[in-house]
């Protein structure tokens, strides 16, 4: 009986300490030191938040760079991947379809090597990034949709390169382009952007 009472008291003590005080303390520090990051790294545009830097969005229109395939269509409730095994026929068919669609959508040569992240769905379904190569393959199509001239198109290529994040500290993780930030850049480059919508 004594053990049971002590158990209850210790449990209560640690519930208060690790279940209430600990998360409150971390939240307090986080909100003071890194307020933007602790609140989801939201991006403000036209006086409203248009998304989080870290959460990918669905882009289907020709005027935007497109994101990776997502098993949840970029609806974060809840996040997740396809969980298809490699011997799943559905996966094989999806990869073939996505390749055909990417080539047709971007009017590429049918023999183009499409980078694999554009053919496979991500783990979270919210991957905000694509590779630089995938972004560059979309430049012609995007430039055309915005009626860019040759100089503007060159500028677009330059901004893809400028916005490419190298591996962190130059060796951790992979080189990548954030699709949402790339698409925001288009607003800066094209004054008549809203007319295309």
């Amino acid at each position: 009986m004594k053990t049971i009472i002590i158990s209850l008291k210790v449990f209560l003590f640690f519930t208060i300490l690790t279940g209430i005080i600990y998360p409150l303390f971390v939240t307090g520090v986080a909100q003071v030191v890194f307020p933007a990051k602790a609140n989801g790294s939201l991006i403000e545009f036209d006086d409203r938040s248009i998304g989080s830097k870290f959460i990918g969005q669905q882009f289907d229109s020709t005027i935007f760079f497109t994101s990776r395939p997502s098993a949840i269509s970029y609806n974060p409730l809840p996040s997740g991947g396809s969980n298809y095994g490699l011997t799943n026929a559905k996966l094989k068919n999806l990869v073939t379809e996505r390749k055909i669609r990417f080539i047709a959508f971007n009017r590429l040569d049918s023999l183009t090597d499409v980078p694999s992240e554009m053919l496979f769905a991500s783990a979270s379904g919210l991957d905000p990034h694509i590779s630089q190569k995938s972004a560059l393959l979309q430049v012609d199509r995007v430039a055309k949709a915005h009626k860019f001239n040759t100089i503007q198109k060159q500028e677009l290529i330059q901004s893809v390169k400028k916005l490419t994040e190298p591996p962190q500290f130059s060796f951790l993780g992979e080189e990548r382009v954030n699709v949402l930030i790339m698409n925001l850049e288009l607003y800066k480059m094209d004054q008549n952007f809203t007319n295309h919508k």
Partner: peptide, 28 residues
């Protein structure tokens, strides 16, 4: 705290509803 410095969220909100660039509603 190091994780928050990298962008992990830490707050007591349930979610943020945003209108994506393409105009869809996304609940984060």
């Amino acid at each position: 705290i190091i994780l928050v410095s990298q962008g992990v969220v830490q707050n007591f909100k349930s979610s943020e509803t945003v209108q994506t660039l393409q105009g869809a509603k996304q609940v984060i």
